[in-house]
């Protein structure tokens, strides 16, 4: 192992290197990425906030750094960014809580 810790912020700058060992797939990924993040039916600011929310849901520190900066660049403010994180968090929480319906069903089967 070259490092004694995971998640070095400097590694984010090397993201482009993922094309090194698989160029055609890497190039396709970056072309897709760039197409997706362009202004379309959603604005760049809205897409950045979605990306920031997803970054929290998948708990990617690189993406959190990148999309905190990008969200500001695209004109978002702290309140919008925190609301986006709450959306991610509440859906994550809900995805656990909704399973409680199965727990309740099974509990009812097991009890008098």
């Amino acid at each position: 192992m070259s490092k004694k810790h995971y998640f070095d912020p400097e590694d984010l700058k090397k993201f482009g290197n993922i094309t090194d060992w698989q160029k055609s797939m890497g190039d396709k990924y970056f072309a897709w990425y760039s197409e997706v993040m362009k202004e379309g039916a959603l604005t760049e600011r809205e897409k950045s906030l979605i990306a920031l929310a997803v970054a929290h849901a998948v708990q990617c520190p690189y993406c959190i750094d990148a999309y905190t900066a990008t969200s500001f660049e695209k004109g978002a403010d702290e309140a919008q960014m925190m609301e986006a994180v709450h959306v991610a968090a509440v859906i994550r929480a809900g995805s656990s809580l909704v399973f409680s319906t199965q727990m309740m069903n099974h509990a009812k089967d097991l009890t008098m």
């Binding site: 202004e39 604005t43 760049e44 600011r45 500001f72 660049e73 695209k74």
Partner: peptide
């Protein structure tokens, strides 16, 4: 950080 797209910011 650098400014984003002017037209998009204006619309917001």
């Amino acid at each position: 950080f650098l400014p984003g797209n002017q037209a998009s910011l204006e619309s917001d």
